[in-house]
Write a protein that binds this DNA or RNA. Structure first.
Lengths: 310, 310
DNA sequence: TTGATTTATGCTCAAATAAAGTATAAGCCA
DNA sequence: TGGCTTATACTTTATTTGAGCATAAATCAA
């Protein structure tokens, strides 16, 4: 039966594993990278690896010294799907999203935590829509898209929240891809001559790593609303405001404090430790911990967080 | 820079592509399979393939004669993650979910459409919870799980909706995996001697194909609620009841007719064609078509369908 | 010591959504 | 014609959101 499906072993390809490991460092959602913040940890899937996940763990720990906690698969690409070059050798990349608490302020060795919004400055709406969205991105996209009624511009407007459209933080990937299409990011004209001057602000990365990061951000922003994943990023005890700040960091938008607390408490996701946080700067806050019993159930059944839907 | 990431080409592995192609055939959500309904269409990713998706298209069309429409990636497994056998040769499977309108009543050749619920009879709650859930599955899981207060039983109860828990149609994968763990499906004791007699009703499939199908069902049931994917399964014009039946088929639960119509219409997903359907059996219904303009936007921005949340 | 400032927390209110049911219309068929 | 089926308009009620008011409890600077 198996033979019916496989015609031979002469088409084997190289398989790479890539990790987007995220933590919230001093209120900034950050990603662990090497090469000065340009390269995501990665390496080939090898014979010695017991599974994809254990292979990934081995590579990340070797390259960054950071242990991998919670991980989930993101997406699998074939190189020729993305690098563009037809004749590139056959390679496949399997990307993962990892969530952790940042160890050691800045890890030793060549790896470091870099804020998401260094790569995607237009994605941080915690203090309102960033100026560059309207001052830089909108005019350049408009110029690129042509007529104000064109399909292309309508897509850009709905994805970036122009022309009265609401901002939707989950569309991080579509926004990056649109900028790429428009030639407004460095990755779009690598090797080619051209007008880098038109690039929108934001650090670029090696190969398609910034795209993979955008995929991770979009996935996490979606997931945080219905699954209790934030807790993977939190210390064992925390105040509700700290929890709120983590949600805001990831979703990139502000949250109504009272409603946030109401939703969290009514779902019984957390319980009081009985201690108080002393250093909140104002009235001391109760400390909470995640309720492990609920954790199990909610991991399966879902949660709600008050991040606007449209 | 690339060298930093790759240590050599001596670890190449075989990559398989697997498709779960779904259509609604006479009201039954169905999957296209070969081998008499036991095997999902699949084949190795080859040098000649321009991309993963085009490779998949080639295999599915060769094996089934059916064209592939909308597809999205489901999950990537390494064989040793699943088949269990440690020493199995290195192979990776990339699975895809495809949605289409069924061509030709029963396609020629060795492929055929088989209803999802032949494989997962406990997943069809359109006419209420099936009897086998309480008469077969609950007692066997209870026996397997041990004490009524055990972690294991609590998990089973919450996933299957026992002990007053609500049924959640999105948990199709978790349910299958639990039955597998409990040894209640044929796949759990292949090659091993043992009590097949305890197996729960439902067709099994080759290798882990039934698990892949469960993954597809769960994904689709989640996605249908916030993205207009049902339309991929519909003919160009349809009545609202036909649309509702398709949603019910996929989600496996009944929908309140009036509320369904209200939600669909208020979102402007569809428009009247002006024609009426004559053969509805009762009062003739208006015919609708999907609004393509909205399609573009909704594909990005999302939709709502009235399938209960918990 | 006091008042400004900051954070925490309890509570209200109105708008928007969702869930369920009532009522009536318009075809078919025996 | 009456019974059955499906279509479609509307009402009712409960629940969930989004937003804001008010008060409490700390710090800090004058």
């Amino acid at each position: 039966m198996r033979d019916l499906l496989k015609t031979g072993k002469d088409h084997d390809v190289q398989v790479d594993l890539i990790a987007v490991l995220t933590a919230v460092v001093d209120g900034a959602p950050s990603v662990l990278a090497i090469g000065g913040g340009e390269v995501l940890p990665s390496g080939p899937f090898e014979l010695g690896h017991r599974s994809l996940q254990s292979g990934l763990r081995a590579w990340v720990e070797r390259q960054t010294g950071h242990p991998l906690g919670y991980i989930e698969q993101l997406y699998t690409f074939a190189d020729s799907d993305r690098i563009g070059g037809e004749g590139s050798d056959r390679a496949i990349s399997i990307s993962y999203l990892g969530l952790t608490r940042a160890k050691e302020p800045q890890a030793s060795g060549p790896s470091s935590w870099t804020g998401w919004y260094d790569y995607f400055p237009w994605e941080d709406h915690r203090l309102g829509a960033p100026a560059l969205l309207f001052e830089v991105i909108e005019p350049r996209l408009r110029k690129w898209a042509g007529e104000a009624k064109s399909e292309t511009w309508l897509r850009a407007a709905s994805v970036f929240g122009f022309d009265g459209h609401a901002w939707n933080e989950e569309l991080a990937l579509q926004r990056y891809e649109l900028l790429f299409e428009a030639g407004l990011v460095a990755e779009a004209h690598r090797g080619k001559p051209g007008s880098e001057s038109a690039d929108v602000p934001g650090r670029s990365m090696f190969a398609d790593h910034r795209r993979i990061l955008a995929t991770a951000i979009a996935r996490l922003r979606t997931k945080i609303k219905y699954r209790p994943v934030v807790f993977e990023l939190m210390p064992p005890v925390f105040t509700l405001l700290q929890l709120q700040r983590a949600v805001e960091a990831l979703s990139g938008r502000p949250v109504h404090k009272q409603n946030f607390r109401r939703l969290i408490e009514q779902q019984e996701l957390v319980e009081e430790t009985g201690e108080m946080a002393a250093d909140t700067g104002g009235r001391p806050a109760k400390l909470f911990r995640f309720r492990p019993a609920i954790h199990m159930e909610r991991t399966v059944m879902g949660t709600r967080l008050p991040v606007a839907r449209s």
